[in-house]
Design a protein around this nucleic acid. Structure first.
Lengths: 152, 152
DNA sequence: GGTGAAAACACTCTCAG
DNA sequence: CTGAGAGTGTTTTCACC
């Protein structure tokens, strides 16, 4: 896993724009195309680069109503937890779900069209799951920063 | 913006794997390469596809300590808010920041190496910003789902 | 809207050094 | 790591449905 400065630079560039060519990277980092190519392939093999994805404009596809939903479970038995987590994976409105410490057990990031769609999600999907003790919704007013980039 | 079923299918495929070739898409959707190519270019021009990025494995690059940091501001004057938001953008540890309704003003998603690094971020970076009334940290125990895909 | 084909080009990938 | 060559995918254009 030992990443040198060149690897880190490559990862930074690819995190910002994965359509950048090895040619362009080799030009910027003053290395041959082959060297850059080998390094990228190695990073992919090591699964340091997990995948390449297209990021959409949430507003343009009418999914800009973002809600953080905090969930408490009734019991934290192994069965309850794993069943809940399996069900969450199936909900397409949930883009992220983290098991967390603190006042509640899970934080969900939910992406829908509007409040009506959120209500529908809450009433007909989320709260039909077994084992939920309470939910608390926090609504996004505006997006200040939303990046997939991590500083390496 | 009117997306038909073909556009939606293309967007779904590209959100899952942006390295998929137009050839492969045309095969799956039973359309010619030319048609697929034209549609992708249109989606890019319309900025429905915002960008293409590489997603890294947080664990492998030693940034798997994820914290949700809830922030309250002292005053919500325009100056305070815009200055705070500008400063947040500069913090590389903050991958996401949303202005939200509810008990606090902002939710930050912070990605660092470990608790020590988080403490350092909190003490030396975040809380040196002016206008913050309080912060509350919620730590990730485990990641259940973490997707960039949105259902179109 | 769509097809299919051809040509030009760019990038990826491999290999010898 | 480099440079060059082969292979593959992209991009554009065309005539046409």
């Amino acid at each position: 896993m030992n990443l040198d400065e060149i690897d880190k630079n490559i990862l930074q560039l690819l995190q910002r724009d994965s359509k950048i060519t090895t040619k362009e990277i080799s030009y910027r980092l003053k290395l041959s195309m082959t060297a850059i190519h080998e390094r990228i392939k190695k990073l992919e093999r090591q699964k340091i680069i997990n995948r390449y994805v297209a990021i959409l404009d949430k507003e343009k596809i009418d999914k800009n109503f973002l809600v953080f939903c905090h969930i408490k479970l009734i019991q934290h038995t192994k069965d309850n937890v794993s069943k809940f987590e399996r069900e969450i994976l199936k909900l397409e409105e949930v883009s992220e779900c983290f098991h967390v410490s603190g006042d509640y057990d899970y934080i969900l990031k939910v992406c829908v069209k509007n409040m009506k769609a959120y209500r529908n999600f809450l009433v007909n999907k989320l709260t039909t799951l077994q084992g939920i003790s309470s939910t608390q919704s926090t609504f996004m007013i505006s997006e200040v920063k939303n990046s997939t980039e991590i500083n390496v």
